[in-house]
């Protein structure tokens, strides 16, 4: 059986919020190392990979590998009943029909309990190899979101060019064009605002802005976001979480018909 206690319901809420607009139904794969999720969007051009390590929970107990087939919208509805600061406990049997969620309010002695019906989801798992990316850019997640949102006003896709000068987000649309260039930036006082560019070779790729904006919904999870690019491979957008947990998005680059 599974029993996982999160100090802050906030985490799961944000994770599910970030994923629910990309994936409809998905399996939460529970094993002794933690809670993992891998799912693709309907078009299969984007992939989300989440890992909530056992360390993120206190305590975490999972005797057996359990797949919790969840409709994320439904899960969102249940999670809305939880306050951000509530202690959240996930419970499930070994072959569960329902996922039991308990929200404990630390302030008052309120305890709410929900059972979410589960479903069988036949999902294929893709093996994602560790990749040496040509460019790895770390930046404030808010900054990334702002760039994406701003550029989406002009176009549907953005070209990300990483060079030694910096990383340039540019787009061309019907009403004009725009570009945002970030250089490596080191803020001693506030390291969260650092922009760090690791580059082994220059990369220029085009991506769908809508998807990127979608990924940016996870911005609340982490102050910084890591973009990893390599030619001919999907872009990795990673939001690092505490305790080695992460939320990763992969997006296939647009090839060919650049507008």
């Amino acid at each position: 059986m599974l029993e996982a206690r999160l100090e802050q319901a906030d985490l799961l809420k944000k994770v599910v919020d970030a994923i629910k607009d990309l994936v409809q139904d998905c399996n939460f794969d529970c094993n002794d190392s933690g809670l993992a999720l891998q799912a693709m969007d309907n078009s299969h051009v984007a992939l989300v990979s989440m890992m909530l390590k056992a360390e993120s929970f206190s305590p975490y107990r999972c005797d057996r590998n359990i797949a919790l087939g969840v409709n994320l919208t439904s899960l969102t509805k249940v999670l809305r009943a939880a306050q951000n600061e509530d202690i959240l406990t996930l419970k499930a049997e070994d072959a569960p029909d329902v996922l039991n969620l308990v929200f404990e309010s630390s302030g008052n002695d309120r305890l709410s309990e929900y059972d979410l019906k589960l479903m069988d989801i036949d999902q294929e798992h893709l093996g994602i190899p560790d990749t040496e990316y040509a460019a790895t850019i770390s930046m404030p997640s808010t900054e990334f979101r702002r760039i994406c949102v701003d550029l989406m006003a002009l176009s549907e896709s953005v070209s990300i060019e990483a060079s030694k000068d910096g990383v340039k987000f540019s787009c061309t649309g019907d009403i004009g064009n725009g570009a945002v260039t970030l250089r490596s930036h080191n803020n001693v006082e506030n390291p969260e605002l650092n922009v760090d560019i690791e580059l082994s070779e220059p990369v220029a790729l085009t991506f769908s802005l809508k998807y990127l904006v979608n990924f940016c919904k996870a911005s609340g999870l982490s102050k910084s976001v890591k973009l990893c690019l390599s030619n001919e491979v999907p872009l990795l957008v990673e939001y690092g979480l505490d305790g080695g947990s992460y939320l990763r998005f992969y997006l296939a680059p647009k090839i060919g018909d650049d507008e």
């Binding site: 078009s43 051009v45 893709l126 296939a252 090839i255």
Partner: peptide, 16 residues
Amino acid sequence: VNTTGMKKMSDFFKKK
């Protein structure tokens, strides 16, 4: 969203 020109994830990552 127009996904033309975007390969499927399974083209990049092999099934386990």
